[in-house]
Simulated scan of single mutants.
Amino acid sequence: MENEIKKIMDEQFQKEKALKVERYRRLNQFARKGQILFVGSSLMEQFPIDEMQRQIDIPLEIYNRGIGGYVTTELLQNIDACILELEPKYIFINIGTNDISGPEYNKEELLDNYGKILDIVKEKLPDTKVTLLSYYPTNPEFGEKLPYMKEVLGYRSNARIKQANEDVKAFAEERGLEWIYVNDGLMDEKGYLKEEFAIDGMHFFANGYKVILENMLPILKELR
């Protein structure tokens, strides 16, 4: 019975992700070309940049095409709707935290998929500048408060995130791309995601995103 319920839930989640892709395809018809794009998984999808950008002075608009639950293979499969159709001038990517959040994490597979995504962007959008964002810290103590989060927070440990950040940073440098660290101010004295920012130990309330945006502002304000 439990396996059947999990199967149904997984199928429903896949349908929800497919629906988001279709919504983006239709929404992209109304987007302005040559702007800024945020893309990735739930940590990007939940970034309330549409509202926040109204409070800041930047020269270009920011579009968000994150999809919760996405791994690098899914972004690769739907790169048209999530990236190419918008023809952005600048792209900020945060993808891969779901890749590292399980027992079968494979660094080489993550970087290989990331490379394929970037190769397509380079081919299809040669004048677009791509910036990779650091992965954010988590708070494992939420695993005790929210038992359903214990397993995923065990895999998505801060040690694994730190190593993944080092790997992706080196990967970006090899490709001549910019990787930026946006985590200043997010962590407590233990190195955990601050409790006041955390919904479940890994997702953020708006005040956490405000910190990330402030860390990005020096770059965003210079884009033309």
Rank of each mutant, 00 (worst) to 15 (best):
P218Q: 06
V71F: 03
N113F: 00
I95Y: 00
M202V: 05
F30C: 11
K33V: 09
P126D: 05
D188G: 04
L110W: 01
V21D: 03
P137I: 14
E22I: 04
D80C: 11
G154V: 07
I58Q: 03
K17Y: 01
L110I: 00
Y63P: 06
I120H: 02
I91D: 07
G96W: 02
K129T: 12
I49G: 09
V130R: 00
Y181I: 04
K221G: 11
D57S: 12
C82Q: 15
R26D: 14
D200E: 01
N106M: 01
N3W: 08
D119C: 05
N78S: 10
N215K: 03
I83Y: 08
V121Y: 00
L146Q: 15
P147M: 14
L19W: 11
Y90K: 12
K210T: 06
Q55F: 15
I120K: 05
F142I: 03
N28A: 12
M52P: 09
S157A: 14
T73L: 10
G191L: 06
A18P: 06
K17A: 05
L133P: 10
L132P: 02
E85Y: 15
I212A: 08
E195I: 08
N215P: 07
E2S: 15
Y114F: 03
D188S: 05
R23T: 11
G68I: 04
Y114G: 04
W179F: 09
F197N: 02
Y114I: 00
R32Y: 02
A172N: 03
V130S: 00
F47N: 11
Y181T: 11
V21G: 01
K20Y: 02
E166Q: 14
P88H: 10
N28L: 09
D99K: 04
D127K: 15
L125H: 05
K89G: 15
K129L: 11
K124R: 13
L177G: 05
M187H: 08
P48Q: 07
F47Q: 09
S101D: 08
N139H: 10
V21M: 03
T128E: 06
Y114A: 02
I100Q: 11
L146N: 15
R26M: 13
K169D: 11
D80M: 13
F204W: 02
I5P: 04
V211Q: 06
L133C: 04
L86W: 08
K20H: 05
G34S: 12
E173R: 09
E85T: 11
S134K: 01
E123D: 12
R54T: 12
E189D: 13
L125S: 03
L177H: 02
Y70T: 00
